[in-house]
Simulated scan of single mutants.
Amino acid sequence: MKNRNLIDSFNNAINGIICAIKSERNMKIHICTAIVVFIMSIFFDLTKAEFLIVCISVAMVIVSELFNTAIEELVNMITTGYHPKVKIIKDVSAGAVLVSAFFAVIVGYFVFFEHVSTGLESGVERIRQYPMHITIIALIVTVSVVLVLKAVTGKGTPLRGGLPSGHAAIASAITTAVALWSINSKITLLCIVLSLLVIQSRLEAKIHNFIEVFIGAVIGFLITLLLFQTFL
């Protein structure tokens, strides 16, 4: 069936990624590896070109695995018995993942070797000098935790409803980052008011209940506070 609106399109796409992660062991490995690679990219002084190359390499591996999963599901739906052609189809799609992963490892080696040899300390110091980096990391971690919890609880969709509230988590994370980063109490107060309005809108629209928005707000607050306390 055709998606009714843009939100449904995004929800279905995210659900597809979540299904692949939950059902495929290799996808779990790819996602964990991608997270480690991106964290390393933040710690080490990569150029813009190097970072873009890393992003493209990671995307190629994950996209290849998504196509591989889709092809396997399609073939399994068509036939349940053994057939030489089916084996070839699955082997070729798996081979595409292997090729992309192999070249991603080569890219990672050449990009990170020199940076790793210079040490981790300079990367940590750079993050401390730019709190915006910590804020971005906090938002990424917060969104990831929210999506994982929604997948585990099975309630709502990735972008609407369910436990916890993603809007409340993100609003809380941003407000916490501003409060810890800025010395201007007026800006902090404004962010608190805006966060409360976001939470109130989710309650008024009956998209979330109080427990869902409360847990979301706590998650955003704790993750951001932990990261700022770690790096600053």
Score class of each variant (00 low, 15 high):
206 K>S: 15
127 I>R: 07
149 L>E: 12
128 R>E: 13
57 S>L: 00
22 K>Y: 09
157 T>M: 12
174 I>P: 01
52 L>T: 13
53 I>W: 04
186 K>T: 15
23 S>V: 13
84 P>R: 10
120 L>P: 02
130 Y>R: 08
222 L>T: 09
125 E>I: 14
143 V>C: 03
140 I>H: 02
16 G>S: 07
52 L>F: 10
184 N>T: 13
214 F>C: 08
211 I>G: 01
2 K>A: 11
210 F>Y: 15
163 L>D: 02
170 I>T: 10
216 G>L: 02
120 L>A: 05
38 F>M: 11
96 A>V: 14
76 N>R: 08
53 I>F: 13
148 V>K: 05
74 L>Q: 11
76 N>G: 02
96 A>K: 06
21 I>C: 10
166 G>E: 04
212 E>L: 02
68 N>G: 08
180 L>I: 12
181 W>P: 03
118 T>M: 15
104 A>Q: 05
147 L>F: 13
97 V>Q: 01
131 P>G: 08
223 I>T: 03
22 K>A: 11
115 H>Q: 00
5 N>H: 04
125 E>N: 13
1 M>Y: 14
208 H>F: 12
71 I>H: 10
69 T>H: 11
15 N>V: 04
135 T>Q: 12
108 G>I: 10
171 A>S: 12
164 P>K: 08
96 A>E: 00
38 F>W: 05
219 I>W: 07
146 V>E: 05
23 S>N: 14
70 A>C: 15
151 A>C: 03
11 N>A: 11
39 I>P: 01
124 V>G: 14
94 A>F: 02
67 F>K: 01
